[in-house]
Amino acid sequence: MLSATGIHKSYGKLEILKGVDLEVAKGEIVTIVGASGAGKSTLLHIIGTLDRPGSGAVSINGINTGKLSARQLSAFRNQHIGFIFQFHHLLPEFTALENVCIPAYIARKSQKEAAIRATELLKMLGMDHRAHHKPAELSGGEQQRIAVARALVNNPLVVLADEPSGNLDSNNAQSLHNLFVDLRNEFNQTFIIVTHNEDLADLADRKIVMKDGLISGMGGTTGGIKNA
């Protein structure tokens, strides 16, 4: 479903990615781990079309994202890729329900259609009772669940998460990790997650280890990491 081939990325003379190849299947949970500076977040941003590679190609559902115009890429990103970050980035002046609806509005869905989908997601995530609360009235775990609902509102092909539980306490982090597995099991949702959290990394179907801009190892989490 997703393929990244020969991904290189440099900023000036600093080479961040040195030729990364990665394939992810539909319904797979893949975690990317490694020391700070290994290139994990840069790779995630390139896969998510937030940045372009210096060379190489990213294909999602058979579409080469590098061949899309800026306008086409923006629409593709909105409709097919969901994002969850360490900080929820909810808009403080809007309610939980309104925050979840925003990507659907950008995709030109009607207010009614967006609200129905957002309400369904909030109910599924156990947050429907908080639909009309603003972010400041929610706990950290609740805020991040709203961010998950927002990422899912347009039924994306893939959800990309960058340290999604990095700002949560251990109980809320574990709850969020279990939620990712539940969403995959119920909806065959695909996740690619950058994390330093070993518990989350070990819940994945596959764990990718990055070092110095390259994939240094990968394997199923039940069998341990195998050297590439």
Rank of each mutant, 00 (worst) to 15 (best):
A4M: 10
T5C: 02
G6C: 02
I7D: 02
E15L: 08
G19M: 13
D21F: 10
E23W: 05
E23I: 15
E23K: 15
V24D: 05
A25C: 02
K26S: 04
K26H: 07
V30R: 14
I32M: 05
I32F: 06
S41M: 09
T42K: 13
L44N: 04
H45S: 06
I46C: 01
G48F: 15
L50C: 06
R52G: 03
S55F: 02
V58L: 05
V58W: 10
S59L: 03
S59C: 05
I60A: 00
G62N: 08
G62L: 07
I63K: 13
N64R: 13
S69Q: 04
Q79K: 12
Q79N: 10
I81R: 09
F85Y: 14
F87G: 01
H88P: 03
L90V: 10
L97Q: 04
L97Y: 01
A107P: 11
I116G: 00
I116F: 04
R117C: 00
T119D: 04
G126E: 12
G126T: 15
D128L: 11
H129M: 05
H132E: 14
A136R: 15
A136C: 02
E137M: 12
G141C: 09
I146R: 07
L152Q: 08
V153G: 02
N154M: 09
N155M: 11
L157I: 09
L160N: 06
A161V: 11
G166C: 04
N167T: 06
N167I: 08
D169A: 00
L179Y: 10
L179P: 06
L179T: 14
F180E: 07
L183A: 02
F187Q: 04
T190V: 13
F191E: 07
F191W: 14
I192P: 06
I192E: 05
I193S: 00
A201C: 08
L203E: 03
L203R: 15
K207S: 00
I208E: 00
G213Q: 07
G217E: 12
M218H: 11
M218L: 09
G220M: 10
